[in-house]
Write a protein that binds this DNA or RNA. Structure first.
Length: 415
RNA sequence: CGGAGUGUAGUAUACCGGUAGUACACCUGCUUUGGGAGCAGGCAGACUGGGUUCGAUUCCCAGCACUCCGACCA
């Protein structure tokens, strides 16, 4: 894509009063637009990142055998009254023209369970799982920290359905592994810790995936050698001994909750009548698990954790482009032609390239490249063209290598 | 929802009880291309409502919005 054709602009200054690092960088780089507190629009570059994160999540959900669905944002209050969750204050509630109430979905257990009553009747129909990636609405008392805690945000919610608890346990383990893989793939695997948290009525613990970061609002105690954490909400002597951990081996961290998995048991299947006939023809409530992961929050966490004082730093897997081609052509049509040819060559090799074709100073091009955080920059200038070379710069390390211009596509493909 | 702070151009800011200046961005022209470049010209602004006052962007009150702290976050 040509830089000159992107309608967004970069900015030197972050908006007044915006303190959160992810919001400052993402707004300055033109990735997102703030509509109101806790409500952000995704502009072309930001949407590319968000979509890549969502696609990684989608791939891992599909690998679990989960089936993708798309439920609705508008919610029927009757379902939520059955599970006694219509009165919760996270709701955005509105009404139809004739006055009937509807809600905007903030999670979707009730809805999917109700829909499934028309499709599940036998133990032969189980187990299975279904997920969606959708915009959720939560009327937070206070939105904060940029896209880490919004009132409208992207969420992947997976629900699993089983005949018994044992089967749920097996699937639950598989989801844990899938989540680890997702966080590794999006580039924050090293910083993300499987954390024990409060379990609710059905199970002793739930599990959270906590990305360690000062920007987080949770406090977790982490055991490095066991690669697990304990959420401060359940940090007691009893829990420590239950998990075989000693206080001395744990370190305290602030963390961003990027995922949360939960055993629901029969809470919703009983409330909404999702039952199946077992082998003896007896009716049983379905046993359920639910598994949340917020792609938009993950995007914010990546910005917080990997971003530096010069700007964003995207891992290759989620970067809006793989290569940022910077042409310092000046008046040289030779350099401009070489840059243009290289751009075409990169595209032909399937390398997503942002080509800074602007008539602008070198400084502004370098600063924009650092702010946007594309993993690799290729710099081409008059002096380099004379050597038939370009410079290849790594955004994260700042390392620069000179590579012959006819070897560039190969070099990028190999690295 | 409790507490604190802030609302001036697209953005960041300055000054002021007598109608607002600067920088970036944007437009025109020229120059310029290895670190947010220069010259000249141009466009563009006081959150809303009320009060005090001869006069309010400035002072007071209310509302709204945003940010931060806290509470909240199956």
């Amino acid at each position: 894509m040509l830089f000159s054709e992107i309608f967004t602009k970069t900015r030197k200054e972050a908006p007044k009063g915006e303190v959160s690092k992810n919001a400052r960088l993402l707004i300055r780089a033109g990735f997102i637009h703030k509509e109101m507190a806790g409500v952000y629009a995704y502009l072309p570059l930001g949407l590319r990142v968000l979509s890549k994160i969502e696609n990684i999540v989608r791939e891992e959900m599909n690998a679990l055998g989960a089936q993708e669905v798309l439920l609705t944002a508008l919610q029927n209050p009757e379902l939520w009254k059955k599970s006694d969750r219509w009165e919760q204050d996270v709701w955005f509630k509105t009404q139809l023209k004739e006055g009937a109430e509807v809600g905007l979905g903030w999670t979707q257990e009730e809805q999917i369970v109700h829909a499934l009553t028309q499709h599940v009747g036998s133990y032969k129909d189980l187990p299975f799982s279904a997920y969606q990636i959708q915009t959720k609405f939560r009327n937070e008392e206070r939105a904060k920290s940029g896209i880490l805690r919004g009132r409208e945000f992207r969420m992947k919610d997976l629900y699993s359905f089983h005949t018994d608890e044992k089967d749920l346990d097996m699937f639950y383990k598989r989801v844990q592994e899938a989540y680890k893989k997702i966080f590794k793939r999006v580039g924050i695997g090293e910083q993300t810790v499987l954390t024990f948290a409060s379990g609710g009525a059905f199970s002793k613990y739930s599990h959270e995936f906590q990305a360690l970061s000062e920007a987080g609002e949770d406090t977790v105690y982490v055991s490095r050698e066991k690669e697990i954490g304990i959420n401060a909400e359940v940090y007691t002597d009893a829990v420590l001994s239950d998990l075989g951990l000693h206080k001395d081996s744990l370190t305290e961290h602030k963390a961003i909750e990027v995922g949360n998995i939960f055993k629901l048991g029969t809470r919703f299947s009983e409330a909404l009548g999702l039952s199946f006939k077992d082998e003896k023809g007896k009716s049983q409530p379905t046993v359920m698990g639910c598994y949340g992961l917020g792609p938009s929050r993950v995007m914010g966490a990546i910005a917080e954790i990997l971003g530096d004082d010069r700007g964003l730093v995207w891992p290759k897997s989620v970067a809006p482009f793989q290569v940022h081609l910077i042409s310092l052509a000046g008046k040289s049509t030779d350099v401009a032609n070489k840059a243009e040819a290289l751009y075409k060559e990169l595209i032909e090799n399937g390398i997503e390239t942002l080509y800074d074709d602007r008539v602008a100073g070198a400084g502004i091009k370098f600063s924009d490249a650092e702010l946007m955080g594309i993993p690799t920059s290729i710099i081409i200038s008059e002096a380099l063209v004379k050597k038939e070379a370009v410079e290849i710069k790594d955004r994260k390390s700042g390392e620069v290598k000179e590579v012959k211009i006819n070897k560039v596509a190969q070099y990028i493909t190999d690295h």
